[in-house]
Design a protein around this nucleic acid. Structure first.
Length: 752
DNA sequence: TTTTTGCCTG
DNA sequence: CAGGCAAAAA
């Protein structure tokens, strides 16, 4: 298998020998998984499978390009009929202009009522479209006529002759047309009934009432824009003039216009800019192109807050949310299907498909860091072990993975098989390790779920960080069966594209380290890597490194990852992508800063070697190393400041009434805990995870929680008067680094 | 001496 | 977030 899990699983077999100690924070048990396990709670932000799919015929209709059922009918007859009428009008010459004015006025009045157009809107749009077609024909005839008249007399004569002949035909067809009109009237009547039925539905859905509509109409236009927008479709007036029927067909029953309608018309940029459409727009203010803009608009809406329920402001109420959800579901499903197709295509084109597509998908879904089974983490631990005290010599307490003395291989292997908690001798550490940190939970990869749920304001069950209930099923379905999480998509596509780029044999377990780094900057598929104009340096470096295979991995162990970064990689999408060949990214980019901040959730005290490992695209030198270390120093500083600040505040708020306080507990004896619904959490998240790229790992929560309590207790007990009181807390925090996810080993940001 | 860290300042 | 500084450790 090629999932990271398995990739590393393979490495694991090679590297497990280096797994010298039961690193409290490593092994099978990334404590952040429980956090991820609550992904389902993020449902409101993501298309959740849990919520029953509401019946959204309105939205569904909009998503059907085929349009309304009346379309064929309307177009068929009106076009034919009105086309002839237009010709007659052309013959009548200047009268037409006058008619236009009148017609426009009449029908405009009818359309003006157009409001919350969904189903009805579709119909209106189609009718409008048909009308526009007719109008265009008529105008074309007019223009054509004028032009010819103004051109040459001979042509004019010919034209007259032709028209004369046609007139005869029309005389013969007049009877037929009469019948046609009758039919048309019937159809219109029928359509009217259907529209009325639709109106009922619309009113039902939107909770509006015809009375409101009446009120709105009598009160005049509330939005001047609408009046202009909803100009119209004068073709009907021909019928109106003749039979006086069309006014009954006015669309005034439509409820007030929702933003969708306005937006679709107000932003011409997103509209189809074909010539005919432009013409229609100029003629009709876009009355007939409502539908065309709907899907595009929907896409725009997705990004402009309407999906967050802002329809309330427009009177949409819960409908807005339903609309947003429906949109998300539909679009998400569509995107997933497209992705799936692309993936299938790609995997078909690969010589060894099974080793790429399914594996990559599964690896992400299963989660990688836990699946490493001690492999990569073992290597990392080995790396840190090899750092020994030399790297962090000043730490009063040895780091968890550095402290224990070497153990015999047999003992190591034995402990690997033991439940994690049984290997903990440190009681404090036990409290930090959730019991459900089981390899089976590895599908709850924080990466996968980073977009799945909002870290903020997430109810923290009983504020017990270590004992969440059984993880709910992942909101993500297996590949091809539902929306893919963005990071997964990113990773997968990059894998595939990179494979395609490099003409390499399919990814196998050993070369993840070699292949991943250059993928980050190469989201675009290309089969001409060598001539790719913006070929990122990282790609070149990556190709350079490709022959390393497993060997490279061991090299990495020896040189602390410098080999990967030595070639000058890119800094992720925001740097390497735009570097031309020959340039290099030696410094740290904002992307690196972002990555470092995310890393801080796992490592408060990363060693320089660790940094080199996790910033393989950075060309390390003294300055860069210092800067990175400085960053983490700043992160810690901010972290401690916030901890102390909130601890002091908590201490103030929980002054013991009887003068006796229980350390770490408030005045009621309740232990101080850091919940995800707290201001402190919000601040920390804002600082380290501003764009919510990541689900804040449970482990970080525990560390922060512990730090908070330590500060709180120290303040409570008056230890803060000791000039060195903070250092003891620092020592504790210093021990609590946890394994950084494998994704951080990739260049650029772990979240793309 | 070098590296790392914490503290302070801007 | 960076720069400067001092202290501590290797």
């Amino acid at each position: 298998m090629d999932s990271p899990t398995d990739l590393f699983g393979c490495q694991s077999s090679l590297i497990s020998a280096f797994d010298l100690y039961p690193n409290p924070s490593n092994d099978h048990d990334p404590p952040r998984r429980p956090t991820s396990s609550r992904a389902g709670d993020g449902a409101p932000y993501v298309g959740s499978n849990r919520s029953p799919r509401p019946p959204y015929p309105l939205i569904h209709h909009l998503l059907q390009p085929s349009g309304a059922p009346m379309r064929a009918m309307g177009q068929l007859h009106l076009d034919r009929y009105m086309g002839e009428e237009a010709e007659e009008e052309a013959e009548r010459g200047a009268e037409v202009e006058e008619d236009e004015g009148v017609d426009g006025g009449v029908v405009r009045e009818g359309i003006r009522g157009g409001g919350k157009r969904l189903n009805s809107d579709t119909l209106v749009a189609d009718w409008g479209h048909d009308m526009l077609t007719v109008k265009r024909l008529r105008l074309e005839s007019l223009v054509k006529g004028d032009g010819e008249i103004g051109l040459e007399e001979e042509e004019e004569e010919e034209e007259r002759g032709r028209r004369f002949a046609e007139r005869g035909n029309r005389e013969r067809g007049r009877e037929g047309r009469r019948r046609e009109r009758e039919e048309l009237k019937e159809q219109l009547e029928e359509a009217r009934e259907r529209l009325k039925a639709l109106q009922e539905k619309v009113w039902k859905v939107f909770g509006g009432r015809p009375a409101q509509e009446e009120e709105r109409r009598s009160g005049g236009e509330e939005d001047g824009g609408i009046e202009e927008e909803e100009e119209t479709v004068d073709c009907i007036t021909e019928e109106e003039e003749e039979g006086g029927e069309i006014d009954n067909f006015s669309l005034s029953f439509l409820p007030s216009s929702p933003p969708l309608h306005r937006l679709a018309k107000q932003d011409p940029k997103v509209r189809d800019d074909k010539g005919t459409r432009d013409e229609e727009r100029s003629l009709n203010g876009g009355g007939g192109v409502v539908l065309e803009g709907v899907l595009e608009r929907a896409g725009v809406w997705m990004g402009c807050g309407v999906v967050r329920g802002e329809w309330e402001g427009f009177g949409g109420g819960g409908v807005g949310q339903k609309f947003a959800q429906a949109l998300k579901q539909e679009l998400g499903g569509a995107v997933a299907r497209v992705i799936d197709r692309v993936l299938r295509l790609y995997t078909k084109n690969q010589s060894h498909p099974p080793s790429i597509h399914p594996s990559i998908l599964s690896c992400r879904e299963r989660g990688d860091e836990g699946g490493a089974g001690g492999g990569v983490w073992a290597s990392l631990r080995e790396e840190r072990m090899s750092e020994g005290g030399a790297v962090a010599p000043d730490q009063p307490a040895p780091r968890p993975n550095e402290a224990p003395p070497p153990r015999p291989q047999a003992l190591r292997e034995q402990s690997e098989a033991l439940p994690l908690v049984t290997r903990r001798s440190d009681s404090r550490r036990n409290t930090l390790l959730p019991p459900n940190s089981h390899p089976d939970n590895r599908n709850h990869n924080p990466l996968l779920l980073s977009h799945a749920l909002p870290p903020l304001r997430q109810p923290h069950p009983a504020r017990l960080p270590s004992h969440p209930a059984l993880p709910p099923p992942s909101p993500y379905t297996p590949a091809g069966h539902g929306p893919l999480p963005l990071p997964l998509l990113h990773f997968t596509m990059q894998q595939l594209f990179a494979r395609s780029l490099s003409h390499l044999p399919p990814l196998h377990k050993g070369d993840l380290m070699n292949s991943d780094p250059y993928m980050e900057g190469n989201p675009f598929p290309s089969t001409h890597a060598p001539s790719y104009p913006l070929l990122p340096l990282a790609l070149i470096g990556g190709l350079d490194r490709l022959d390393g295979g497993m060997q490279h991995h061991h090299d990495r162990e020896r040189d602390g990852g410098m080999r990967g970064g030595g070639g000058g990689g890119d800094g992720g999408m925001d740097s390497g992508m735009f570097l031309g060949p020959g340039s290099s990214q030696e410094g740290l980019s904002p992307c690196h800063l972002k990555k470092a901040k995310l890393m801080f959730f796992y490592a408060r005290y990363p060693s320089s070697n660790t940094l080199k490992t996790y910033f393989p695209d950075v060309k390390f030198n003294r300055c860069v190393t210092s800067q990175l270390i400085k960053w983490f120093s700043n992160f810690r500083e901010f972290f401690y400041i916030q901890m102390e600040r909130f601890a002091r505040q908590a201490a103030r708020d929980n002054q013991p009434r009887d003068g006796v306080s229980c350390p770490g507990r408030d005045s009621r004896g309740v232990p101080l805990r850091l919940g995800r619904d707290t201001e402190l959490y919000r601040i920390l998240n804002m600082h380290y995870n501003k764009s919510n790229d990541y689900q804040v790992p449970e482990r970080f929560m525990e560390v922060a929680d512990l730090a908070l309590r330590e500060f709180y207790t120290a303040i409570q007990t008056g230890r803060d008067s000791d000039p060195c009181w903070k250092k003891s807390i620092y020592k504790i925090i210093c021990k609590l680094d946890s394994p950084v996810p494998d994704s951080f080993r990739l260049p650029g940001c772990p979240i793309g």
